[in-house]
Design a protein around this nucleic acid. Structure first.
Lengths: 145, 145
DNA sequence: AATCGAATGACAACATAATGCCAAAATAAA
DNA sequence: TTTATTTTGGCATTATGTTGTCATTCGATT
């Protein structure tokens, strides 16, 4: 049966919205014992994946959120000594957000629960399918940037 | 270059979080003139795609959200006469949420902006890729249900 | 029919995020 | 350099969503 691309795409959009909600629930359940919330582990994940450090608006762009929302979270995480603000050589006002020593430990603990989860979930999914999906998702992201 | 499935998957997860944010921004920009917010068009979309009507918790399941959040939105949308609560033959307390006459018009307007957008975005993307991605996303949704 | 567990509605408290606004700084363009 | 545009920080307001709790209803099991 032939389904039009339009319907296919709208279905994909709704499914991604749904998967987003489920992923957040998964993450929250997974990080419950680490005293993390999704707002927090999303920020930690974004920073950990970056190579040269990220500014607050940079994190917001990676996460597809408003910079104000990210700023709020990073401020309290700096207070909690999970994150640190460091001078940004490329920008006087916009500081870089980095993991503190404690934050790095948190990240290690995060990976300790995240990795087995990722391995388990993808157990029966070929890498090729993941790659194809990732390529498409990135392609869409580019369009909307 | 070979990337492990684990990293691939975690990358996909972050990308989906990001795409989610961008899709919401796209939708909000698109529906600005329709006086809709993403919380609202998500509900309208879910109802419109259902065949036999949906209850509030049903909508929440489709959207991957809490039923309380959906209830809050549907309550104000009923006040605004976009939605209607109808008796549910299968459940005494859990009513069905349907589009009112005005709501149907809103949905028509929604499709008027949504369809060209969907067609435009998928212009250079083969249907097969969309199908593959949709299959994977649904597969993941099933895992997390 | 009686009972038990799951689903639902209702409400409150809280967390997260978006929006709007303005000033300062950075970047790009002239 | 000067000007214009964009980015950023900060702040307040509002919107959205989650979590927790309790009573009611539904559905399944016995």
């Amino acid at each position: 049966m032939h389904t039009s691309k339009r319907v296919l795409f709208l279905d994909l959009v709704l499914s991604i919205l749904r998967l987003n909600g489920l992923l957040i629930a998964e993450g929250d359940a997974m990080t419950e014992k680490l005293d993390l919330t999704h707002a927090r582990w999303k920020v930690i994940g974004a920073i950990a994946l970056s190579t040269n450090g990220l500014t607050v608006p940079g994190i917001a762009r990676v996460l597809g959120q408003s910079r104000q929302a990210v700023q709020r979270i990073t401020d309290v995480m700096v207070e909690d000594e999970i994150l640190e603000y460091r001078a940004n050589p490329k920008h006087k006002r916009s500081v870089l957000v980095t993991l503190s020593e404690e934050g790095k430990e948190v990240y290690i603990n995060l990976r300790d629960v995240q990795d087995p989860w990722a391995i388990n979930v993808t157990e029966d999914i070929p890498a090729e399918e993941l790659e194809t999906a990732l390529r498409l998702v990135r392609r869409l992201i580019k369009k909307f940037n």
